Computed example of a mutant assay.
Amino acid sequence: MTERTPYRARVHAPGEVLEVLPYDFESPELISGTDRDRLDAALEAWGRQLGLQITAKTRAVVDVSTAPSRVQSFGAFIASADGPVLWATARLGGGRVVYRIPLAEARYWSARMLGASGDQAGVDRPLTAVERGLARAAATEHLAELRPATNDLMPEPVLEAFGTEPPSSVDRDAQAVVVVAGTIRRGERRQLALAIDVDVVLERLGAVSPRQDANEVTTRISGHLALAPVEIALRFAPTRVGPDTVLDLAPGDLIPLAHPADRPLVITLDGNPVLRAAVGGNGDRLACVVVESTGGPS
């Protein structure tokens, strides 16, 4: 049996300033460093190609700028949709990619491709069969640019579904996706968005590690939590006194404590009692000697 190295907590000096960075569990840091730079550069190239393609199809100059990618759940990606949208779902290697298009933008593309001005401000209606067909064809072409624009970083997508409802085949809570938003700059700004299965991205980046056992993941998380800085305090049993006693206190007065002299003090962790200890010393500093465990906070 392999012995595990025990986690050792670091003791911080009194008054030491700790720099603690918050961790966003809604957007875990699965991709970082050069892999993140490589991915964002590839998706930025796809955004530029998208702008050129929309410009050629609609005969209206369009510039698509992409924001840095982020990892989030598929459910969060769906919830971030602003207004009516179209969803194009495609098979991408061993996973899926979902392309989100504002309905108003799809209507604009269709109108321009049919020779109209595309100016339909305030129009709120479903797409006609012709508009839907043109929008589907445009989404297929946009997704097809993923592979060449990213220099084969992403595999060739194969469109599976297109409509006004997000795909039900993707687990909204468990599936993590890499999301990149592209802003169309042409008068009124609208935002396209792309969500790619994170497993596909990690595999293409060569950053895939063997799948960890659930117990191993739990052990590792517990280890990280054990290293997180926390505040501990040594506490006497509480003593109740009246307001008159407090108001009459003067230098040199004694307050009898309800804590018996032979009873250990309580060590608290962020206010929760976890251990019992006796007062001790460590060089020129006060310390405590743990004498009994309370079993941890409930």
Rank of each mutant, 00 (worst) to 15 (best):
L202M: 12
T34D: 13
T164E: 13
P102C: 00
I54F: 12
V97E: 01
V97I: 05
I184S: 15
V177Y: 10
A176H: 14
R100H: 03
E3F: 08
P297M: 05
G47F: 09
F25Y: 12
E29Q: 14
V290W: 10
L234R: 04
I31V: 13
A41T: 11
L205R: 06
G95R: 01
Q120P: 02
S293Y: 03
W109K: 00
A60L: 15
P210T: 05
R70I: 09
G281N: 04
E44H: 10
R96W: 07
T183W: 06
R8T: 15
G271T: 00
S117K: 00
E145P: 01
S110T: 08
L249H: 05
R107H: 04
F162I: 03
L103P: 00
N215G: 14
F74R: 03
E165P: 02
S222V: 11
A121K: 04
R10T: 15
R10P: 04
D248I: 03
D244Q: 10
L275C: 01
A45G: 11
E216H: 08
G47Y: 09
G223A: 10
A104L: 02
E16H: 10
K57Q: 07
G242Y: 05
G93D: 12
H142I: 10
P157V: 08
R190D: 11
V85D: 00
G280I: 06
A13R: 12
L205A: 08
P260R: 06
S27G: 15
L153T: 05
L247E: 05
V123I: 07
D124S: 08
D24E: 15
G242N: 07
L50I: 12
E160S: 03
A137H: 06
M1W: 08
Q175F: 13
L52T: 14
T55W: 02
A233Q: 02
V291L: 03
